[in-house]
Amino acid sequence: MVNAASRPDEPVEVRVADGDPRPKAVLEGPDIRRALTRIAHEILERTKGGHDVLLLGIQTRGVTLAERLAGALREVEGRPVPWGSLDVTMYRDDLRLRPARALGRTEVPPEGVDDRVVVLVDDVLFSGRTVRAALDALNDLGRPRAVQLAVLVDRGHRELPIRADYVGKNLPTSMRENVKVLLAENDGRDAVLLGPTGGAK
């Protein structure tokens, strides 16, 4: 995977002093909206018009983002783009580190994933383990022609050889920090928060 499309933003100035428990908003609603619109354009550009594209949001906020992206694509292109949801719980590599948890919904549009360009959508790209699980989950659903990855925030610290194709914002962080994406549909408002570990969640 080559990350050709993103125009990395300037490193964010807003830093959180160690010990400050209050998370700071690094992106607000309009920033998120602009980022998604930009990603929509990049998708159309890279997939040459977005035919065969299928958006699959990773539970939970990735699904909301996929739905919004689908809306943005429809606005630009004037025709609906299929989107769905993917729950990767059963494929996670950290399942046995915590008690078994409730499953989210996996809903693939009736067109299926075979021979389509599947764009996985998630809120934050961090270690890459969730995306690894999503690739495995996708593998059991069928055989896409290509798989791409769109994320709202890339905070670095990858533990696997995974890169995003579309990034809303690159956000260099320390391991002691926590990035939290809030979306109106899930959380009542749009924001990306950066705070010390344990503070933002």
């Binding site: 059963m90 399942l95 046995r96 580190l97 915590r98 008690p99 078994a100 948890r101």
Partner: peptide, 11 residues
Amino acid sequence: LYLLLGGSEPA
């Protein structure tokens, strides 16, 4: 089976 055996401890 998933909820009993899938995690670190039964849910």
